[in-house]
Amino acid sequence: MSRYLLDKFLFTVDRDPALVERYREDPAGTVEWWEAEMANTILNCTADERSTWLEFTEDERRALREHDHVTLFRMGAHPFLTLTLFIAMFERDHGPLEYQKAYGRAMEHITLPYPDIAT
């Protein structure tokens, strides 16, 4: 499990308007590109100073490729990051608060304690 890397994906995509659109339109291509090019980027460093060890598990790739916010929650991805990014991608297709409520309903079978989100 690489909760940190899931969070890093959500964090870096959410703060970049072009990446938000790219992930909405082409999730599989975006996840593949991001893991190859971005996963090992140290965010506060020059491009050459990279990490060497970060990669998704296949389950994590699938959850991201399928925009599966319920599975991301179960994996312990930070719920604020997931929610913020998914609102950015999909709220526009729905009426006021409709998407946020449906997002919660899709998880109503999940009970306390929620998955650990510590990284």
């Binding site: 719920p79 997931t82 929610l83 608060l97 946020q100 409520k101 997002y103 309903r105 998880m107 109503e108």
Partner: peptide
């Protein structure tokens, strides 16, 4: 407060 979980936006 609940954000990103089943009890949000009640």
């Amino acid at each position: 407060l609940e954000l990103g979980g089943p009890r949000q936006f009640g």
